[in-house]
């Protein structure tokens, strides 16, 4: 997962998280969220530590592909696509079968990442209904991707005609 955070926003987000956490204890109304597809897939390094941006071409990485369907299905498919120049040392690149709602399916894979370039590894899941793909989701893992921590310059608060705070973005 990309972690390029705007510093200022991060501070505000943490403040919000604290506020929301406090609100749940103080009896806030339920949160009405947006609808989500009933499929969720992630791909990440198996061991804690080796973030994508610390991996060099030629390194061997252990990856875990995790897929969850939030509906019962008898036709869930997981496929993992790797760059041509990458080598699979162990693990299966696909799985098909039934899954109960909320059941997590994982595919452990060991891959030698490309000697040259930074081709990404893509995992896709889908569930079928009546022979057709009903929902699908994808996730990508980019070995060697350089992440830059971008910080936003602090901007002075101005006032509008009501005396309320305004941040200007020219």
């Amino acid at each position: 997962m990309s972690m390029v955070f705007y510093f200022r926003s991060l501070v505000l987000v943490l403040a919000l998280a604290a506020a929301l956490s406090a609100s749940s204890a103080s009896g806030a109304s339920p949160m009405h969220s947006k609808p989500k597809p009933p499929v969720q897939i992630t791909i990440e390094a198996a061991q804690a530590g080796p973030a994508p941006d610390s991996i060099k071409p030629g390194d061997v990485v252990d990856l875990i592909v995790s897929a969850v369907a939030f509906v019962d299905t008898d036709a869930m498919t997981i496929t993992v696509a790797i760059p041509e120049s990458a080598v699979v040392i162990s693990g299966n690149l696909s799985w098909t079968g039934p899954a109960k709602r909320g059941e997590k399916k994982t595919l452990p894979i060991t891959v030698r990442v490309p000697q040259k370039g930074t081709g990404d590894i893509k995992a896709e899941m889908s569930i079928r209904r009546d022979g057709r793909i009903a929902f699908s989701a994808t996730a990508r893992y980019i070995p060697g991707e350089t992440k830059k921590l971008k910080t936003e310059q602090t901007r002075p608060l101005k006032k509008d005609s009501k005396g309320e705070d305004v941040i200007e973005y020219r």
Partner: peptide, 16 residues
């Protein structure tokens, strides 16, 4: 706010 990871939702009574 750019960077807000907390989801999209409607809330009444949230402290913010």
């Amino acid at each position: 706010a750019p960077g807000n990871p907390n989801g999209t939702f409607f809330c009444v009574g949230c402290a913010a």
